[in-house]
Every structure is written in structure tokens, then in C-alpha cells.
Design a protein around this nucleic acid. Structure first.
Length: 497
RNA sequence: GACCCCAUCGUCUAGCCUGGCCCAGGACGUAUCCCUUUCACGGAUAAAACGCGGGUUCGAAUCCCGCUGGGGUCACCA
């Protein structure tokens, strides 16, 4: 395939959504696999709902995930500008062209009129569509209404569409994932394309931009399937079509479509705010690694065709193909994400791990030197699902633990036995060098105690050190804490009994 | 309501195009066991799915039709 040009076109009306990120990911993978170009276009024609801060959030989120656009508002490119708000002149040119050709017209119906028309149609089990009689207005009538202050909108005149092919009553397009999709033309109304000459509406602006930016493949969510016939009609009205490849004579889309299955919430409806975290930002602040999210999202609706699951970006690019796409929606299952995240956490070096998770450590960690923090990192790294869990798990490394005295009791041992076991541990430690290694400490204990003593001795010891029901082993903890601090804690435990 | 899309374990999926190798494979999760002072890691085992009904065929998870179910879209949002 010659180098494809693909794009994602988010509107900056909210933080980067995981659904948008996944669409970006598939576009990116597709582009990189075929040595193509991945473009970011900001769809901010609705100035009221758009906000620069969301635009920034989208840039940042994409960068964090490692999905870098080749062309976009930040990096520029030969077909810019890449913000729709800066492309008004281009849209105006084409709207005027359609108006002059009689393929678009001004409609003066009020929202209320439109609303009640639609309601009535639905009640009568008719498809909801607005076939507008205002297309018959003369130039003078239009001017007159405008002068008198009547609100208007520009609509596409669907009746101008004549498909010369044998599929005449239908609009048909080829989809890489879904094969052919058909729509009956008579079900479409005169849909809106612009508020005015310089304020285009979504369905119009996408077509113009995809054409002007020389997009070859439109890869987007399947929620866009119902928009596709409208967009095709606009493209054809402007004369943008490909010659039929199968010889049937129908009009072809100027680019190839691929409609991705949706990403769903646990109740199988489109993932939305009410399902919990939906923005990439939230996942980052919860301590997910970008590589893990990237890998996880790629496996939602796609698989390499073999049993591999842990696939870094490089492998994903190499294996990617739209032919292997699933056709049905996929639930965003955070349980599996957790697992994948832990796999990626384990692959980090201790140093990388601490760099990434440092922000989640207990605040006191800054009072300790790097060597100490790295030791704590090393012991927790393989136990974590999320970086953000590190804080609550490592508090005892940075301050004296507080706990219930009963926690010190191993099974049904008596107070005297607990006290005795704590003293024994202390005695063993007393013989050790103050900076003994984990191995040295472990050997000292194992030499001293028998197999039967392990539980009764090690359990109270570990609790005395960590104050926790569950923690890493006592030898590991002592090696980090140091012999002196360990003895302090054992003493403190004895006073509790 | 109209239109469109979809349908393999609880979840993500392989297999479907090119019917037999599939009494359906992998992974997450779950359960049990091993390792083990606890937690985690690691190892092992188990339960768990072709929505239903027709048809085509010697043979269907795979092809066709219908049903059912789920989802999406119907804005002067994108």
C-alpha cells in the first residue's frame, strides 16, 4: 500500500477520553505499520463548547501515551492550519459553491418547528427527517427574510443526489472492517451543513478537511456509521469521488473507511462518565503506565492473531492490521488493565520505577537518601498493580508503625510466648553488624531457629517491623531499615505486650 | 419509533473469509494445590463459551435465512 494518511479529529470539549485515545492508537498503529502519516486535527468549530485547556489536555495525553502526530496544531505540516476554527475561509468557499450550484440552501425554520416535526414523525413510526420546502425560495425572498432578522441555517439539498449506479436508491460504501454498508437515500432529510458561510457544522467540516488534508483512510468509531452517508453526499456534490473499482458504476468514497467497534462500560453501553474514569488523565493519576494503557487499549477489539498479549509499541506496529479487527464492542475491563500494568511495572528498572512512582511515595521519603528509597522501591515493585498503591504500602519505612497489639499474636500463642519470641529476635540481631545484608540477616536467623519456630518467631517480628498484616518478609525489611532501627521497633513491640 | 451495526467462557480474545485438524485454544479474573511466617512473585490443576430455530452439506462455531438479544445514531454537538 502506498503511504496512507490518517487522522484523529477530537473536539476540545473535554479531557482526552479513552475512546478517543484508542481511536488515535489504531490510526497511529495503522499509519506506522505502513510508513504513513498520522495527523491530529482539532475540531473546534463550536466555539462555545471548545476550550484551549482541553486542547492542551489532548496534546499532553497523546504525548504521554507515545502517540505523536506527524502533523497537527503543534507540529504544523503542509496542509494546515490544523484547527477548524482557523479554516473558516476554506469552508466558506465550498459552502458558497454548493449554494450557487443549488445543492445547498437557506432554511428559516425555527428549532421549535423542527422539534415538533420530528416528534410527530416518530409518533407516526416514520423516520425522523426534515425535507425542507425553503429550498424553493428565490434569491429575493431569502434576502428579504435575512434583512428582517430571521434566523437561518444552511442545509444540503438531498434531492439533488442522483446515484448513476445500479444501487440507485441506496448509498453504499466499502468498510475495511464491515465490508459493504448500505443506506436508503430516501430516509435522509435535508441535513444541516453550516450555521452560516463561516461557521460550518461537523458533517460538512470533516469532509472538507479530510479532502483538503489528503486523508486516505478514515478510521473512527462505529458511532459514526450513521453520519457516513451524509458525508459521502457532500463529497460527491463537490465532485470528490473515486472511480469505481468493481465496475458497477456507483459513486465511490474519496477515501477508505474503517469503523472501529466501540469501547464499552461494564453494562455494555458506550463508555461514559457514569462508568467511572473515562479520561486518560485519570488513569495516569491512578498510577497506570502509558505503555500498559497503550498495550491494553490495542487489545480491545484487536489481536495479533496469536497468543501474545504483552506487546510493546514496536511489536504492535509490526503486527497491526485492520483485517484482524473484532466487529463487536469491547468492555473496558480495568481488572485486566491492572494485570497488564503490573506486568509493565515489573519490566522497569528499579531506578525507572522510582522515577515514575516517586510522586506516590509517602511525603517523608524526601528526608531519606536515594539509596534508601531505591531499596524500598525494589521490594515493592513486583507487588504493585498501580503506582499509586505505593504510598499506603510503604509508610512504615519512613515512620514508626502504629498497630493493634493483637496483631503481634501468631495463631494462639500466649503473651509470654510473643514476648519471648521478640526477645529471641532481638538477641539474634544483637550479634549482627549494624549494616548487615539481607542474606546475612537471614542466615543468622535460620541458623538459630528450627523449622517449627518459623511462624511463632517470624510473624511477631514482621509485625513489629511493619505494623502490617501483610508485608514483604522480615529479612528484607530489616535489611532496609537497618539493625538499629529494627531493634528499636522490636523494643517498642515488647512494650505493647 | 425509524435506520444502521453486532453476537465464541464473567471479561479480552483465537478459530469464521478458504466447512472436517475444535466434544473449541490462550489470557485476565475466580477456585484448589505447591512454594511460603504474612502478602506478593513463581509453578500446577480445575470450573467456565460457539444465543435460539431452520436450511445447505457426508460433515457447520465456521456458509445462508429467520428469530431473539445487545448496542449505536437520529442537534443550528462533534
Amino acid at each position: 500500500m502506498s503511504a496512507p494518511r490518517v487522522r484523529i479529529a477530537p473536539s476540545p470539549t473535554g479531557n482526552l477520553h479513552v475512546g478517543t485515545a484508542r481511536a488515535a492508537l489504531f490510526n497511529y498503529l495503522f499509519a506506522k505499520h505502513y510508513n504513513g502519516t498520522f495527523i491530529l486535527r482539532i475540531e473546534d468549530t463550536d466555539v462555545r463548547r471548545s476550550d484551549k485547556k482541553y486542547e492542551q489536555n489532548i496534546f499532553k495525553g497523546l504525548r504521554w501515551l507515545g502517540i505523536d502526530p506527524d502533523e497537527g496544531p503543534e507540529q504544523g505540516g503542509p496542509y494546515g492550519p490544523y484547527r477548524q476554527s482557523e479554516r473558516a475561509a476554506t469552508y466558506g468557499k465550498y459552502i458558497r459553491q454548493l449554494l450557487e450550484a443549488g445543492k445547498a440552501f437557506y432554511c428559516f425554520h425555527t428549532k421549535e418547528e423542527l422539534e415538533s416535526e420530528k416528534k410527530e414523525q416518530m409518533q407516526n413510526k416514520l423516520p425522523a427527517r426534515h425535507v425542507c420546502e425553503h429550498k424553493a425560495f428565490s434569491r429575493e425572498e431569502i434576502e428579504q427574510k435575512k434583512v428582517s432578522g430571521r434566523e437561518s441555517i444552511i442545509r444540503f439539498d438531498v434531492s439533488t443526489y442522483q446515484d448513476p449506479g445500479p444501487h440507485n436508491p441506496q448509498i453504499t460504501f466499502q468498510d475495511i472492517i464491515r465490508d459493504q454498508v448500505h443506506f436508503f437515500t430516501r430516509l435522509l432529510g435535508d441535513f444541516s451543513i453550516a450555521k452560516s458561510l463561516d461557521v460550518p457544522l461537523y458533517n460538512f467540516a470533516v469532509v472538507i478537511d479530510d479532502y483538503e488534508m489528503k486523508i486516505t483512510h478514515v478510521i473512527r468509531g462505529e458511532d459514526h456509521i450513521p453520519n457516513t452517508p451524509k458525508q459521502l453526499l457532500i463529497a460527491w456534490a463537490l465532485g470528490w469521488t473515486q472511480k469505481s473499482t468493481d465496475g458497477v458504476g456507483d459513486l465511490q468514497a474519496p477515501w477508505t473507511y474503517a469503523h472501529l467497534p466501540l469501547i464499552l462500560g461494564p453494562d455494555r453501553s458506550k463508555l461514559s462518565k457514569r462508568h467511572g474514569a473515562t479520561s486518560v488523565d485519570e488513569y495516569r493519576s491512578q498510577g497506570y503506565l502509558p505503555e500498559a494503557l497503550f498495550n491494553f487499549m490495542a487489545l480491545l477489539g484487536w489481536s495479533p492473531g496469536d497468543d501474545r498479549e504483552i506487546l510493546p509499541k514496536k511489536d504492535l506496529i509490526e503486527a497491526f492490521s485492520l483485517m484482524h479487527m473484532q466487529h463487536s464492542g469491547a468492555i473496558f475491563d480495568t481488572t485486566k488493565l491492572d494485570w497488564m500494568n503490573s506486568e509493565y511495572i515489573k519490566k522497569l528498572t528499579t531506578k525507572q520505577f522510582f522515577n515514575d512512582s516517586g510522586g506516590f511515595f509517602p511525603p517523608e521519603h524526601t528526608d531519606y537518601d536515594e539509596r534508601y528509597n531505591l531499596s524500598v522501591s525494589a521490594v515493592e515493585q513486583p507487588r504493585l498493580k498501580k503506582l499509586s498503591d505505593i504510598g499506603e504500602r510503604t509508610g512504615y519505612f519512613y515512620r514508626q508503625p502504629e498497630y493493634e497489639r493483637e496483631l503481634l499474636r501468631w495463631k494462639n500463642t500466649s503473651d509470654a510466648e510473643i514476648l519471648n519470641s521478640l526477645r529471641r529476635s532481638e538477641d539474634i540481631l544483637a550479634k549482627l553488624d549494624s549494616s548487615s545484608s539481607k542474606e546475612a540477616i537471614e542466615k543468622a536467623f535460620l541458623d538459630e531457629i528450627g523449622e517449627r519456630d518459623k511462624g511463632p518467631l517470624l510473624w511477631p517480628l514482621r509485625v513489629a517491623l511493619s505494623g502490617k498484616k501483610a508485608s514483604p518478609g522480615p529479612f528484607e525489611i530489616m535489611a532496609i531499615l537497618g539493625i538499629d532501627e529494627s531493634r528499636n521497633r522490636i523494643n517498642a513491640a515488647q512494650k505493647l505486650i
